[in-house]
Design a protein around this nucleic acid. Structure first.
Length: 493
RNA sequence: GGCGGCGUAGCCAAGUGGUAAGGCAGAGGUCUGCAAAACCUCCAUCGUCGGUUCAAUUCCGACCGCCGCCUCCA
């Protein structure tokens, strides 16, 4: 079964057929590094990380390029405010961005080209456009002449004559048409600049993406992504530049991530409701944020609030509980006698197999992570039921069937990017690494010792003492649960 | 004004021309010394009004409400 993706250009779901068999070339617009990113940015990057990981899961080789815009009005202004050079400012926030992404468990791009390191490449494209008559120089600026590009508007479905053209504060008089946009901006005093055939200046915003995406991925690469708000004008302009210059289709599939609102309102400076990712991460595990994002289809609007965050946390806990309890059961399960599955185990295998197919079916359908999560929770239920049977003794159960549950769960986590580190390794709860000791007793040993004492107290019906031990451990963040014939514990995250 | 999207249970959120996944919360039950976790059961006719159809929440139309974009924007 093929993967189907919604293509913004055609406004339809289409079968994903890569340019090259088994290989996906993908470009996602990255940050302008003038500030810490906010939770809305994070949504977009998490969505594309999910998409990338799913493509990997489905066996594609994925080349993932994400640019860093490190020269721009916003950067220059912010640098002036802070009294540092634009270069230093951009470097600072680029590094912060990389840390944020790592915290979120977003895989680093295959390559993260920076605009300032590709000025020459951009100048080449601009020259190409000037030579072909699509661009013109005007007082040291160079503009793309929208009227010359017949297909202009095909991505965003706009007819420019019918658009409200709010006059920008820019140099309107230097442009031939109101929709013409800058490829090159003449330098003003004190601004970073590079020399060009049209005098010193710096590139416009859109040109870097056309240039760098094509440079690294070639013509007509597979997927171009970004936030929905970039469709117009950013992507429309990128497309115009690239296709005007090369004469070939720029991109095969345009994918756009839906916007995130805060408490039902658009996040904006004027409303003062911007939520920096870093702040959110102080009180919330990255996995909670990912869970929240996965719960809504990537193209739908998503409302972000403390309530929605709490909600996501609660459902994530159901998953982590399952993982912990599964791990615990695994540690106490019998190897499994003659290794032959009983009717029960055969039924379980069959069910898991079916759920896995369902899961893939949902993800194949335009990366429907919300529906896929539904299936994940079905697996959680099956696992919990089986783990319950194992834990409560009765007939001996097969370890291999527990491992089967684990395999399916881990598989789905990987496909969704849940519990994955930025570097492609997993950190699924339950698989606690051995706690290091300094030669003395380890934490585990001490906790187990306490719990053995508690168990003895319970056996003697000294419930007051038993509860005291449990309560004290709870206060210390150690969660104790009794199971038939024993106990299990874990450290709360 | 142009383009686009949305309106599904208390909340979040999938989805389908044939009587609606999943999560959270809630109610009841099982298990437990208690608790926790878990399991079981219960909890919606899908904004309104028309139309097409044997059958619509799902298709079409109108209307109401909400939202995004229209060169800052993930």
């Amino acid at each position: 079964m093929p993967i189907r993706v919604y293509n913004t250009m055609t406004r339809k779901k289409e079968e994903l057929v890569p340019r090259e068999l088994g290989k996906i070339s993908m470009y996602v617009c990255g940050p302008t590094v003038y500030n810490y990113i906010h939770i809305g940015n994070a949504r977009t990057f998490l969505n594309f990380d999910m998409i990338r990981r799913y493509l990997l899961y489905r066996g594609y080789e994925v080349e993932f390029i994400q640019n860093v815009t490190d020269v721009d009005d916003k950067i220059i202004n912010k640098a002036n405010e802070e009294g540092v050079s634009p270069e230093v400012l951009a470097d600072t926030y680029r590094e912060a961005f990389e840390l944020d992404m790592a915290d979120l468990g977003v895989m680093p791009p295959t390559m993260a080209p920076q605009a300032t390191e590709h000025i020459d490449d951009m100048l080449e494209v601009i020259s190409c456009l000037v030579d072909k008559g699509y661009a013109y120089e005007s007082e040291g600026d160079v503009y793309f002449e929208v009227e010359k590009f017949a297909d202009y508007g095909k991505l965003s479905g706009r007819n420019l004559d019918e658009q409200q053209h709010t006059l920008a504060s820019g140099p309107e008089d230097r442009k031939r048409g109101p929709w013409d946009f800058a490829l090159w901006k003449a330098a003003k005093p004190g601004e970073p600049s590079w020399s060009s055939p049209w005098g010193p200046g710096r590139p416009g915003w859109h040109i870097e993406c056309s240039t760098m995406s094509t440079k690294y991925l070639g013509e007509s690469f597979d997927i171009h992504g970004g936030g929905l708000d970039l469709v117009f004008p950013h992507h429309e302009n990128e497309l115009a530049q690239a296709e005007a210059c090369t004469g070939k289709p720029f991109v095969r599939y345009w994918i756009h991530s839906g916007m995130l609102n805060i408490d039902m309102e658009k996040m904006s400076k004027s409303l003062g409701n911007i939520r920096p990712l870093r702040e959110v991460l102080i009180e919330n595990d990255a996995q909670v944020i990912r869970m929240l994002m996965l719960g809504t289809h990537y193209r739908s609007p998503l409302n972000f609030s403390d309530d929605s965050l709490a909600d996501a946390g609660a459902s994530l806990e159901r998953v982590t509980n399952c993982a912990f309890n599964l791990e615990d059961a695994l540690s106490r399960a019998a190897v499994g006698g003659d290794g032959k599955k009983t009717e029960r185990e055969l039924e379980l295998s069959k069910k898991l197999e079916g759920l896995k197919d369902e899961f893939v079916g949902h993800m194949d359908d335009d990366f429907n992570s919300a529906a896929a999560l539904g299936v994940l929770f079905d697996v959680v239920r099956e696992t919990n039921t089986y783990v319950g049977e194992v834990t409560s003794g009765g007939e001996p159960r097969l370890k291999v069937s527990l491992l089967e549950c684990k395999e399916v769960l881990d598989d789905m986590f990987g496909a969704l990017g849940l519990f994955q580190t930025a570097w492609g390794t997993t950190s699924v709860p339950g698989e606690e690494p051995a706690r290091a000791a300094d030669g003395g007793p380890s934490r585990d040993q001490l906790v187990d010792l306490l719990l053995e004492v508690r168990q003895a107290a319970r056996d003697m019906k000294s419930f007051e003492l038993a509860d005291r031990i449990r309560d004290s451990l709870t206060e210390l963040g150690v969660r104790v649960e009794d199971v038939p014939g024993g106990y299990r514990w874990r450290v709360e995250r």
